[in-house]
């Protein structure tokens, strides 16, 4: 075991792994994290704790991860390259490991101008860092863990033992280069990969074929990303505006039908779409898990954690594996 994390154990067991997502609040109140952790506990093997996602200030990933851990939910702390240089990154990684965190996902992070896609003020005037990129950060974690060395070469008395994650956008451009970039992440040391949300399963299948031809799937655990759709509007937005995500028209049409069939009652239309969204998510999970080389799913029910139990049960992924000595 590289880290001994629950996520690593599930992956090693050969059973499909399930990760979820927990977004910390724009508040100093721990209750929201605790509440979400309680909802997710038992319905995933580990939950990503986002790191100021959409470039908005929230409880830090490490602090929220520790809150989740106290509730018995295994966290995957996230670390973006946007806000820290390699000194701060490594200091935070040592601190996170000392606090008991065992999984870390390395990502570039949304640009500081993103400000929740313009919905919030954010801090578009902030200076970004990008001292290292996500692939270099993966390499830093691996060097710390496996060689007991800092990036600069100084020794670590006790190495931080992280299960190292990275992201993959199979539908991102230039698409023919994406599998090679994924290979770089895995060569740098990524133990697991979570993909951007997949709606276009055919596209993902074709990218996975290239991934298999490069032998990447044998060196890392690829978890297919599932973003649970809530409404036809959300699917349309994801299709038109979210980079690397395309939504096939039949899925949007299904959601539109669910909405229209519910009539003019807004509450009913919302419920009908949510019900259809859960069905779509379950189907996507099943289709993605059938693709050779896929070792699990990363299910994001954004601000809708209560949907996880229904989805996991319907997908045949409940109960989650447990390990007696853990």
């Amino acid at each position: 075991m590289k880290s001994g994390s629950n996520l690593e154990r599930v992956i090693a067991s050969g059973k499909p792994a399930v990760t979820a997502e927990l977004g910390p609040p724009m508040s100093a109140d721990p209750q929201e994290v605790i509440h979400k952790a309680k909802l997710l506990k038992g319905y995933c093997d580990a939950a990503n704790i986002t790191d100021c996602q959409t470039a908005v200030v929230r409880i830090s990933s490490i602090a929220a991860a520790v809150l989740a851990l106290r509730e018995g939910l295994e966290p995957v702390m996230q670390m973006t390259c946007r806000d820290r240089n390699r000194i701060a990154m490594q200091a935070d990684l040592l601190g996170a490991a000392a606090l008991g965190l065992r999984n870390c996902l390395c990502i570039a992070g949304d640009h500081q101008s993103f400000s929740a896609a313009g919905k919030l003020k954010g801090h578009p005037g902030a200076k970004n860092v990008y001292d290292v990129d996500s692939i270099q950060l993966v390499g830093i974690l691996k060097k710390m863990r496996d060689e007991g060395l800092q990036e600069g070469g100084d020794k670590l008395e006790v190495a931080p033992k992280f299960f190292i994650g990275a992201a993959f956008t199979p539908g991102g451009e230039p698409m023919d280069y994406r599998p090679y970039r994924l290979k770089k992440k895995v060569d740098a040391g990524a133990d697991f990969i979570q993909t951007q949300g997949i709606y276009d399963v055919e596209m993902f299948k074709s990218q996975m074929e290239k991934v298999r031809n490069l032998g990447i799937h044998e060196k890392t655990a690829i978890l297919g990303g599932i973003i649970v759709p809530k409404s036809a509007m959300m699917l349309r937005y994801m299709d038109s505006s979210v980079a690397g995500v395309s939504v096939p028209k039949p899925l949007i049409d299904r959601m539109m039908k669910a909405k229209n069939d519910a009539g003019t009652d807004k509450k009913k239309a919302k419920e009908a779409q949510e019900e259809e969204g859960i069905k779509i998510a379950v189907e996507l999970i099943q289709q993605v898990l059938e693709i050779p080389g896929v070792k699990g799913v990363h299910v994001q029910a954004i601000e809708w954690e209560s949907a996880m139990p229904v989805i996991l049960k319907a997908a045949g992924l409940y109960p989650r594996p447990t390990f007696p000595d853990a």
Partner: peptide
């Protein structure tokens, strides 16, 4: 925009 050294991030649209 992020001065990345190892290829495009997931934000290419």
């Amino acid at each position: 925009s992020k001065s990345l050294m190892n290829g495009p991030c997931g934000g290419t649209n």
